[in-house]
Amino acid sequence: MTRAVGYAADPRIRFAEWLPWLAAVAGFFLLPEYLPLGARILTYVLFALSLDLILGYAGIITLGHSAFFGLGAYVAGILAAKLGVTDPLLLLLAAACAAGALGIATGAVILRTHGLTQLMLTLAIAAVCLEIAHKATSITGGADGLSGITIAPIFGAFKFDLYGRTAYLWCLALLFAGWWVTRKMIYSPFGATLCGIRENSVRMHAIGVPVYRRLLTAYTISAMLAGLAGALLAETNQFVGLNVLGFEPSGELMVMLILGGVGRLYGAFVGPLVYLIAQDFLAKQFPEYWYFGIGLMLVVVVLFARGGILGIADRIVARARKYV
């Protein structure tokens, strides 16, 4: 958590912060055959960013963040497949609103609790969402998944093509918007307040901060971003499966964020990138070892490298500076 935010932090965007975007644009031209994977990575970066806001900055531990992602995906999918709403922007809006509504409703409940009870509640809420999606087969397709999603061209002009070019750029544009909003928030007084709550909520109460209300705001915004990411997944895959809901995808997302580095904004970029690329290459050949490796990595990161990849990079840079 070394990225300084707060009242003395320089909010200007540094050069290094443009690098992910340059890389993403370069990827579009240089790796055309990997665009579908790229779109998936961009979607998960947005999802991870939403988790970083509440986990990394506000310090809320949740095992059920997939509830918002899944809800967003299903709302967009159902609207498109069953109700004939095909405008991609409208679908995103609807998904974000639905996820935000779920966020405010569940946040109002879980943020009053702490510790095991809070963990348990987030898990139970995600489990309820999974059960509903699983059992309401007539609407969600149940275990077979929801297919038959058709999406109209973006702004009536850009069709989702077979090579995933439009999908990639669409994801990139939305991630950019999501990143911009999140970054603005983190550098704002509100962001500083969230960090204060994470560091010491007792003290925040004592300086007059309505902690619960601030957390609820952050939680709702995070839910909306996650819902947006879920809807993006539905639009670009034109399919929604049960695997977007429940404990496993929540855990997986947490793994990605931890791998990249929590509470440093760009950990949410690095984590999904590394995880999903590794998964694409390794998981198909060695599914069991892949899972084992993920677990091992998590254990090692927790025991030895709490800052994740970016934390390690920081330390290497710091050490290099010492010798130069």
Partner: peptide
């Protein structure tokens, strides 16, 4: 500053950077 901002009613602002 966290406390000062809260007292002045500015601690929930999201638009401008804290600095």
């Amino acid at each position: 500053a966290l406390g000062v901002a809260e007292r002045r009613g500015m601690a929930a602002r999201v638009w401008h950077p804290a600095s």
